[in-house]
Design a protein around this nucleic acid. Sequence first.
DNA 1: GAAAATTTGTCCGTATGTATT
DNA 2: AAATACATACGGACAAATTTT
Lengths: 245, 245
Amino acid sequence: MAAQKQVQRQTGVALWRQIADRIRASINHGDFDDTGMVPPETALALQFGVNRHTVRSALAALGQEGIVRAVQGRGTLIERKERLNFPIAKRTRFSQGIGDQARETRGVLLGASNERADAEVARRLGLPEGTAVTRLETRGDADQRPVSRATSWFPADRFAGIEEVYRRIGSITKAFRELGLADYVRSTTEITAAHADTADLGDLELSPGAIVLVTRALNVDLDGLPVQYSLTRFAADRVQFTVEN
Amino acid sequence: MAAQKQVQRQTGVALWRQIADRIRASINHGDFDDTGMVPPETALALQFGVNRHTVRSALAALGQEGIVRAVQGRGTLIERKERLNFPIAKRTRFSQGIGDQARETRGVLLGASNERADAEVARRLGLPEGTAVTRLETRGDADQRPVSRATSWFPADRFAGIEEVYRRIGSITKAFRELGLADYVRSTTEITAAHADTADLGDLELSPGAIVLVTRALNVDLDGLPVQYSLTRFAADRVQFTVEN
DNA sequence: GAAAATTTGTCCGTATGTATT
DNA sequence: AAATACATACGGACAAATTTT
């Protein structure tokens, strides 16, 4: 093996960061494409002349970036991912937005309940606090991969039974149609980003430290009457949003 | 001090995760509101009966979530933050969007250069590859806090001298006006999220592991001709975007 | 199927560097 | 100048999961 540029100590840049940069460059260069994995931690430690823990810090950082994913007993896998594009517009719908990019899109009902609107939900839906609302917990999949999870609130009186309809057909748009709402439009969308919480990790199959894009969206019928307020968390490494003005 | 529930070993849940959950709950409960800080790592280690490194892992996880921020030599501070709202619409401008939320907004020129459009920039601006473009590196501040950093490309022939104009007045909108473009509108905006890179940490005063919201936006004049393509990175914990349809 | 080897995950202990108070 | 507290790195031990023998 030829000599190579070694990591340098006491330069103000931590060893683990130098090593992370080197490994990232190697991945981008395609050095590990044959196996799709990073060499074992012990091998990297030997190669860079550092302790295994230092390599682990570097790999942890790359894991944070979503570039690699460590699996106990197997190794550290290189992640490859393309982002699905979600247009945000009047006609924003989950399945339509990505319909041309994924072979199969599906909505899965995770849970549901009937409850009274708290201050936040009431304000968004334009209802008096305490009005009966139906809450649906759903997950959006594209090509068998979880992409988003949403909590949605609907006016309970207007969309009675939406839970079972959605469970059956897996689409809000179609559920609305079956319940007598032929069309609706996106009114406002708020977008923020956060670290994935415990529920995200499970539902979206993310690794700790991953990022979620969080949207708070209001859908209204053609008379401008709110029909759905939803809080959705998207796996940030699987999506991008586009706004066309 | 009364006895308290201790962390448990060999339960399948790592000690650092148990401790992170406990500290998070304490923060939310307001236990540390008097100081605004988490107790020292050594004190927490003693309290939970674990090694200090285990506490550090827990605090690192909370740092990832943006709940705390460790400062060398001082301690681990509890973060409290409100977000500036950026409307994304035809009239999207940095200073206008947050003008009613911050007392002072400012654009700072970090760097500039004249260069040839690469494939990406050429495609976005609708120019032939290799056309002369001006690149500005800018930082957006609100109330003396850095909020975003942007790389913008402009057709060089049309906006010659934009570098010095922007440096003087700190506003793209006003620079355009001085250069003969009275008005422009936002055409498209793409939004993704990523972990902050090294440059983000410096320019935006972020901690490692922080999140940035990344936008790729195209501004066009009233004839639909592209005038600016910009790639902007926002400190995710300081902003939210809203889309009104 | 069982055992061994491989690989990552967790925890402990220690030492030293660096920044703040 | 000294004390405090966070940052980095090393070494070792064992646990847990997976793959190979």
